[in-house]
Structure formats: C-alpha cells, structure tokens
Nucleic acid binder design. Structure first.
Length: 335
DNA sequence: AACACGGTCAACCGCTAGTGT
DNA sequence: CACACTAGCGGTTGACCGTGT
C-alpha cells in the first residue's frame, strides 16, 4: 500500500505559474499568511495547484526580498566555503545568504560555481590519475580502467579538497598561510599535545620554518582533517577554526562525538581548548584565482535550528566515511 | 534558415523528520 | 505507542533560450 498522495493529482495544474496564479497566491498570503497549512491553501484561494507547489512558488519566487541571479563574489565564497564544509545542505547555505533560496543556490552551484571552481582543476586531476597509475599491469596487459568510481558529491568535494592541497595554495604546505596562533595558544598546543612532540622524518625543518600544529595535521589524513573539522564544528557546537584546536593522536579508540575513527587509520579528532580565542584564518584566499576569502563557519554562525532539524550528525558521519572510502579507493596504490 | 547542442532555472518528485491525535 | 499528516529538504527533470555549425 503506497503513500496517500498529498493532493488530487488529476485536478492539479502543473508546470509554469501564470501571472494570475502568482497574483492570487501573493495577495492571499499577504493578507492572511500561509496559515501553517500549505495543503489547504490552494483550495482556499481557488488555485488548482498542489500545496507543495504553492509553497515552493512562494518560497522561491513570490516571497518578499527574494534576489535572483547576480551572485556577488562574497556570496560565491560563502557558498564555496559552506559546500566544502557541509556539502549539499542547500537550506543551511541559503540561511547564510539573505534573499537567496536553497533552490537558487543549488542551481547556481550546479550550473556555474562548480564549473568555475573545478573546471581549471579538472584537467590536472585527470592527468594525475592517469599518470599515477600505470594502465598496464606487470604483464603489459592493459587493465580495465581503475579510475575511481566516486559519487559526484564525493568527487566534487574531493577535488575541492585537492584544490586546497595545491602546494601553491594549500595552507598545509605553505607555512605563510598558517593561521597565526597566539603565543599562549601555541604554547598550550605544543605542551599539551603529544602530536607536537612527534616530528616525522618528512618534517625536517628548513630555514625559517617551524613545525607546528598545522604541519602535523598535514601529515595526517586530509579527509579526516576536513571532516573532523566539520564534525567538530557542528556536532560539538564548536568550530575547529574558530576555537583553538588540538588534533589528537593517541592511538586510542575514541567514541566522543566529533571524533572520527576510521579502520586502520590514525585517530584524529579535535578538541577546542580555548573557545574565546579566534585564530586568524585567511589561508583559503585566492583559490582558483578568486580574490576573496573563503570562510569557515562556526556553529553559531550557522542556523542551528536548520542544522539540527536536518539530522546532520548521523548523515555526516556516514557521508564522511563514504567520502573517505572513495578517497582511499580512488587513490589507493592497490588500484 | 534550420538544426544540434549545451546552459540555465523553475518546478516537480520522493523521501524523511517532526508533530498532532 | 502507532499512525496519519505536513513541512521541508535535496535530487532530478524538462522547458526555454542562446550559441555554434
């Protein structure tokens, strides 16, 4: 037994809205409001439309102060930042952009922004994938393509991750991009965190360089880092980059919220140690030539209602694992 | 001029969470 | 507690339009 339809589809008009329909809907809502019942609304007005359709039309088009098109560079950066951080939570992203609808942002991302950001990177990534794995096996027999089968979303975010890893742009590899830690913070971080005492061979210091928290992070799993930053942000209500952070590398299983443990991987989590200390964080400038800042968002900057109402926590955990698996699958030497 | 193709965007669809009974 | 119903969300579709051939 299927679900009952929300409306009588036989008597419901579909397709583009006429100006008359718009006027009816707008006039009614202006006068009476939605009455918190979209299903009943079209009958009251005398519109042969589904309630859902009315709602969508109002929210995406008729609502006051709606902006269409003409996204500013600042808006671009906000969308990019949030997409990298939280993925396709369009409603959350839209909540940060007054006058923009989730539908608008979704369309804008899918049709323009994604291409703008990924387009230039695409070729180099393809090259990397094709050259990093010999298409022929030891016997010279051409293998079936081992190109990673990534979900679109995972691929996009992976590519953006890689974009952030660009040696010329990435803050992991570019010390000048590292956020400035307050002296006290740096001291706290280095004195309390075992990670800071671990200096892998790859982190030999060059002149004028320092090994700090961010370089240590760079030796860890990138996805863990990014996903943990998001999880730390939303699950704990604290922002990795707003607060000070302490990556954890203690080899112990962690079950705390916001701490992810992937099989066979170093356990990486982040603990805020000083919430009122805000590190400067402008390291994502000029990604793909953009002059603006990419912004990492703290929980209080996000609409916590929409976040929580979206069951974000559980899905993000799953999603991050999927992305992580995709990443491993895609770039595994076994491939 | 006619056609093909690709980009854009409004609208629809199906699913899920929340709420009321 | 179970069920029904609704709002809201993200993915997808299809019409429209501009551009290239």
């Amino acid at each position: 037994m299927g679900r009952a339809p929300c409306c009588d589809k036989a008597n419901v008009k579909k397709g583009p809205w006429s100006p008359e329909e718009d006027e009816k809907l707008k006039a009614y809502i202006d006068k009476y409001g939605t009455g918190n019942n979209w299903i009943a609304l079209p009958q009251k007005i005398g519109l042969k439309r589904c309630g859902k359709s009315c709602r969508l039309r109002w929210l995406n088009y008729l609502r006051p102060n709606i902006k269409h098109g003409g996204f500013s560079e600042e808006e671009d950066n906000i969308i990019c930042s949030l997409y990298i951080s939280i993925g396709s939570r369009w409603s959350i992203i839209a909540a940060q952009l007054p006058g923009r609808t989730d539908n608008d942002i979704k369309n804008y991302w899918n049709t323009r922004l994604k291409k703008k950001l990924l387009g230039r990177r695409k070729n180099s990534n393809i090259n990397r994938l094709s050259t990093s794995h010999d298409p022929k096996d030891a016997n010279g027999i051409e293998e079936k393509s081992c190109s990673p089968i990534l979900s679109d979303s995972a691929l996009e975010r992976l590519q953006l991750h890689m974009q952030l890893q660009n040696p010329n742009l990435c803050f992991y590899n570019n010390i000048s991009m590292w956020p400035k830690l307050l002296p006290l913070q740096e001291k706290m971080v280095s004195s309390t965190n075992p990670l800071m005492q671990i200096s892998p061979p790859s982190t030999q210091l060059g002149q004028g360089q320092k090994v700090g928290i961010y370089e240590q992070i760079s030796n860890l799993n990138l996805d863990n880092f990014l996903e943990s930053s998001v999880l730390g942000n939303l699950n704990n209500g604290r922002n990795l980059l707003d607060s000070n952070i302490v990556p954890r590398l203690d080899g112990m299983e962690q079950s705390n919220e916001g701490i992810q443990t992937f099989p066979g991987e170093i356990d990486v989590g982040f603990q805020p140690v000083q919430e009122d200390s805000i590190a400067e964080f402008d390291c994502f400038k000029e990604i793909d030539g953009s002059k603006g800042n990419l912004i990492w968002w703290s929980n209080d900057q996000l609409d916590s209602k929409s976040v929580s109402s979206n069951s974000w926590d559980s899905t993000s955990l799953l999603q991050s694992k999927v992305i992580y698996d995709d990443y491993v699958q895609g770039y595994s030497l076994e491939c």
